[in-house]
Design a binder for these strands. Structure first.
Lengths: 328, 328
DNA sequence: TTGAAAGCGATACCAG
DNA sequence: CTGGTATCGCTTTCAA
């Protein structure tokens, strides 16, 4: 069963390869009869065009690259789902690269991908902000990170999100909301903190540094330990906590549980991201939702458009929203 | 900045393209001086070999396809991580295809991928067992599904897993353990049930159909509803439950919580999979761990070997293990 | 050790 | 409407 090529088809249909190509791509009008004849041969032989050869000629591979920091993180996964949904529908495949929060892997992927066979790149950067090689010839869109350079990007308004979360807490509890944050060098965490401060200010509260705890990593463990530290230095638990992502919130909840402080009675808590686990917990976590799937879709769409219409790079900003559940 | 090709390099280095190719691939000995000269030109021009052209010639694309039923399911994601870890280290990229538990998408991907530019395929099948097109010329390894046909596969001993879980419960509670299972048409669930029955038998218990509840979907909701149904028809909660996956177990826990039955005091529960959320819950879920990452790695390794040594297709069976936590 | 040239499997231009 | 052919960028055989 040697692979059948366009040549074989041409021969069997008694036409030139170019003619076969025309019917394959509908790129030129072909007399119905010949078209039929060719189609029949294709059918019979089970011919299937060779993508690689086609790509060599057209300079288009019909595949996009996606670089993510951690595919174990459901937040990114939902974005990927959005990307995939959009792209697969238009005949694109996606090459997935997991950097595992490892800068070297990231750098490596960046150079491999950019020089390999992808038509475009969607880039979800690792914690520390990296540089994109300058010699890029393909469009790239950045998701969820502010970046210098002329790239498209899709962002969520993290300042607003931080504000909404904090205000919600203030309105329900009227005082001292603590902040449990990830590394402030990561733009989303920085922005959420800004939102927190703005909400405080707006309601006439002072920003109290001893109420904010920065976790080394924005993870369950990070949140767990961070909250223990916070509780250790406070005379009593804060009335409420804004955790800058759900995983930290979950870790914080465990810490609270272990210390015997009841949620939300003694201290309320709101998270950020709305990951699936948040709604499964008992009590279920109140949180800020980011339209992750839509973000992925949008990123894919922007990339697609840049490719089709060589549209200019642009930015798109999504709005987060509050999901009230049981913790605050 | 027009793309520089091997031709350009050859020209600037005053050699033939073949010579450049030789140094690129280390495929023939080249006089050190010429090699240096060529390398220098490559450096200066920033030349990077075109993968597509190379693939066309070599018939190898250095990319593998991976088809998964649901990338939102952490179980599959950890397998993917294993695959990625292994493959990326040997210079392979992976094209990820998410079928979303949709058979048509799956069929579609199967035919696209198999005819496109991948060197091998790792296939995690959707719930319903599909057929792999017969005209496959590339190696395929199946993960976590029994399949007819001459494909490699990596499996976990689900019968054993079901047995371990059930025995653990029996040994701690000594009686009537209920089974909350997913569709029995899916081989892993079928096997776990067999393990359950064997454990029962081994300990002299009768298999009681009214103690087993089959959920429409093996999800949180499925488990939640399934358990409510089970409780509805029983005069009192079973002493223990073996839930055939963690998501169902979590749903069951919520149902139990809502009915005011305490875990594990009144009814103990053990899940299956050991997903991250399982350990985060309060109480933390006792469960059966599957070596997901290793499974992915192994699958990748088998594929890799089939490619390298044209090794024969084979099967590999992993052992599950019990993780005792707080629910049982 | 090096080079010329064939060819991988398609696309698309230019003639007819 | 159809065909011949150059070409995409590389690998590899064969000869020098």
């Amino acid at each position: 069963m040697a692979k059948v090529t366009i040549k074989d088809v041409a021969k069997q249909a008694h036409v030139a390869v170019s003619t076969v190509s025309y019917v394959l791509n509908n790129s030129k009008s072909v007399k119905p009869e010949t078209r039929e004849r060719i189609l029949k041969v294709i059918e019979e032989t089970g011919y299937f065009p060779n993508h690689v050869a086609r790509s060599l000629k057209t300079k288009k591979t019909q595949t996009m690259g996606v670089i993510v920091p951690d595919i174990g993180n459901i937040f990114f996964v939902e974005i990927i789902e959005g990307i995939e949904a959009y792209l697969s529908q238009r005949g694109y495949s996606v090459i997935l690269c997991n950097t595992n929060e490892n800068q070297e892997k990231e750098r490596n992927y960046l150079s491999v991908l950019l020089n390999k066979d992808i038509d475009g790149l969607i880039f979800l950067a690792t914690s520390k902000n990296p540089e994109i090689p300058q010699n890029t010839t393909i469009p790239v869109v950045i998701v969820d990170r502010k970046f210098s350079g002329n790239y498209s990007s899709v962002l969520v308004d993290n300042v607003l999100g931080g504000q909404i979360a904090t205000e919600h807490l203030i309105e329900r509890n009227h005082e001292n909301v603590a902040l449990l944050t990830g590394p402030l060098t990561i733009s989303p965490y920085f922005d959420r903190m800004m939102g927190y401060r703005q909400a405080l200010e707006k309601h006439g509260f002072e920003y109290l540094p001893f109420l904010v705890e920065q976790c080394g990593t924005a993870t369950y463990d990070g949140g767990y330990q961070g909250l223990h530290r916070l509780l250790d230095r406070l005379s009593e638990p804060p009335k409420s906590i804004f955790a800058a992502n759900d995983m930290m919130a979950l870790g914080a909840m465990r810490a609270l549980f272990e210390r015997g402080v009841s949620i939300p009675k003694q201290t309320a808590i709101v998270g950020y991201d709305d990951i699936p686990t948040a709604s499964i917990m008992t009590p279920a976590l109140t949180t800020i939702r980011q339209p992750k799937f839509e973000m992925g879709q949008k990123a894919a769409e922007m990339l697609f458009n840049e490719l089709q219409n060589s549209a200019d790079s642009q930015s798109y900003l999504f709005q987060p929203s509050l999901i009230v559940r049981e913790t605050g």
